[in-house]
Design a protein around this nucleic acid. Structure first.
Lengths: 107, 107
DNA sequence: CGTGTAAGGAATTCTGACACG
DNA sequence: CGTGTAAGGAATTCTGACACG
């Protein structure tokens, strides 16, 4: 499901058209560690549709006056939250595994 | 839903990598009216993920020995089928509309 | 800080043609 | 027929820098 969203294959020119951001802006947001395109052999940037959505989100924030630094911190918080949730789910699974193992021993 | 599949934004180089077809092959299949990329202002081709799926399908056929001409005829048949189905659905809707209008008059 | 721009160079893409099996 | 390739030119992208408010 939405399998195409994450494939990095779109050049900066196309991204510029799709977002109506300038190439300068797009490159700058990368400089500020907000987007992470892949590179071709020759070094040209390749973006995904997910990146494009992110860029639109970023530019909205920026035009509202938010500093790119603060946008970055927000991203960081969100990521850490996701990691925490993930770890909790893993912990749950482990406990369940150990419980069922224990039951098997008791029987 | 799969909203990105039809957006034409991928350059021929990226398509070549994703499909492992040569650029020559990709351009040739266009010459044979099998794919229809858009063009940038400067004239560079832009493909969608849907185009990429189609290209993979085409190359499988070709490597099995099917002529591009026959692949084209197949596509045509499929399209006409779709149009016919569409027209049938529309006809249905019209009949339903007229029926309910008639009923309204009778009441 | 966020963005525009001119500069020079490198990577990418284009077309039309010739070649081959 | 389907594909490779060399050729020449044009469009695209890259980086680092200077400018501005």
């Amino acid at each position: 499901m939405d399998s195409y969203k994450k494939i990095k294959a779109i050049s900066i020119g196309a991204v510029s058209e799709l977002t109506s951001l300038s190439e300068r802006q797009i490159r700058y947001y990368e400089e500020r560690k907000l987007v992470f395109p892949e590179r071709s052999e020759g070094g040209t940037r390749k973006y995904s549709f997910e990146d494009i959505e992110k860029l639109i989100h970023i530019s909205k924030k920026v035009s509202k006056g938010t500093l790119t630094y603060d946008i970055r911190q927000d991203e960081k918080r969100k990521n850490e939250e996701k990691i925490r949730e993930y770890e909790l789910r893993m912990k749950d699974k482990m406990i369940q595994g150990q419980l069922s193992a224990a039951f098997r021993r008791i029987r």
